[in-house]
Design a protein around this nucleic acid. Structure first.
Length: 365
RNA sequence: GGCGGCGUACCCAAGUGGCUAAGGGAGAGGUCUGCAAAACCUCGAUUCAGCGGUUCGAAUCCGCUCGCCGCCUCCA
């Protein structure tokens, strides 16, 4: 860039710094839609007499006393922040990359400067697509290290399953800011609960019907309609994702599918044809699993995981034995005892559900 | 102050010129159930921050106003 005239050297305490000359790069500001003249007029840009222009940025920075340094043709120093990214991209990904991501707060100056130095050097487009995400905010302020209003993913994962956190973030568009809140996490957890309850119902149905005779005529139209809904779901999910990663819409579609599955089950179809239709629906949901990395567990694994996260000191075996005890009471129509056992479990966070096929448990979210 | 973006129901959120404004949570009523839970059904924005304009037609386009956020400085 020195050879090409885009950069210049400046003597700084025995060593040299190299600055990029912004005015030499005519497209400067194209990403952040900023105008050089307006930037120059801005009072907040400090004047540094060593730079030709206050907007110029360091490609190589001479090290001051006590700062880390490497040897270079300009003496002791270190790379400028922006050049690191351009250098890595050029070395590992090539002159033009397909997608460059980052937080929206990096658009200016960081990404703008990456473009300037990379394109000045290669004379080729640096990135074909820029994908800038919104911030996670706390009390409407961006969460950041420098503001100190942050907590780590590890801390959140002590209280919530990773899928909860993923679902929470996927529930709004990546460019939108997302307000971090306990309520939102609980909502995401409840949504996953809804999913896993539905899968449990499906699995039960499939186990009971996979080898049964073909569906009766009454179920035939229903199954046909259900199959076509599942097919449409796959198309709609992909369309949403193809449209600038519209994850919130894709999730909306997913929960419509879940409602349709429940409706299908509520209509009490019978036979292997219905079981096959549900297996196809599970397969369709596999798309969500692959793309979003949620829905990766079995309902049982999900509940066992919740026992751990919610710090419930009961094993599945403990719960099963309570259920047996209660079922005996129910058989004897001892509703008082049955209700007491159910209540005791609920107080410890375990919810029982009585169904025709038996009683199941899950962790209350 | 400049630039960029946002404002949709009680909460979250999709929708950016034309089918009844997706979906989830919360709430109310109902079906099922020993009672529950879950699931399902019904109800819920005559309206998209406000005002004005363009259009046969606007949450969507334009203008102004209000509110919020980010960047415009070091560091990353």
């Amino acid at each position: 860039m020195l050879d090409k005239g885009f950069a210049y050297e400046v003597e700084e305490g025995g060593n040299k710094s190299v600055y990029f000359s912004v005015e030499k790069f005519s497209k400067y500001g194209k990403l952040s839609k900023k105008d050089i003249n307006e930037l120059l007029a801005g009072a907040r840009v400090d004047i540094d007499e060593r730079k030709n222009s206050p907007l110029d940025f360091a490609l190589w920075k001479a090290s001051k006393e006590g700062e880390p340094w490497w040897n270079s043709p300009w003496g002791k120093g270190r790379p400028g922040w922006h050049i690191e990214c351009s250098a890595m991209a050029l070395r590992l990904l090539g002159e033009s990359i397909d997608i460059h991501g980052g937080g929206a707060d990096l658009i200016f100056p960081h990404h703008e400067n990456e473009i300037a130095q990379s394109e000045a050097f290669t004379n080729k487009p640096f990135a074909r697509y820029w994908v800038h995400n919104g911030f996670i905010t706390i009390d409407k302020e961006k969460m950041s290290k420098s503001l100190g209003n942050f907590f780590t993913i590890r801390e959140v994962l002590e209280r919530y399953d990773a899928e909860v956190l993923r679902l929470f973030m996927l529930s709004s568009h990546y460019r939108s800011p997302i307000e971090f809140s306990e309520d939102q996490l609980k909502e995401a957890e409840a949504s996953l609960e809804r999913y896993y309850s539905t899968v449990a119902r499906m699995d039960e149905f499939i186990a009971l019907n996979a080898t049964k005779e073909l569906a009766s005529q009454k179920d035939f139209d229903l199954i046909k309609w259900f199959n076509s809904f599942v097919d449409r779901f796959k198309e709609r999910f992909e369309e949403a994702m193809d449209d600038d990663f519209n994850t919130a819409l894709a999730l909306g579609n997913t929960f419509e599918l879940i409602r349709e599955i429940n409706r299908f089950l509520d209509s009490k179809p019978e036979g292997q044809r219905a079981a096959t239709a549900l297996m196809k629906a599970k397969e369709a949901i596999g798309l969500v699993k692959e793309v979003f990395n949620i829905f990766t567990k079995t309902p049982y694994q999900w509940n066992v995981e919740l026992l751990k996260i919610k710090k419930i000191s009961l094993t599945p075996e403990d719960i099963e034995s309570k259920i047996s005890e209660r079922n005996l009471a129910r058989k004897n129509k001892d509703w008082t005892l049955a209700d007491r056992i159910r209540k005791e479990l609920l107080e410890r966070g375990i919810l029982l559900e009585d169904k025709r096929e038996g009683t199941t448990w899950k962790v209350k979210v």
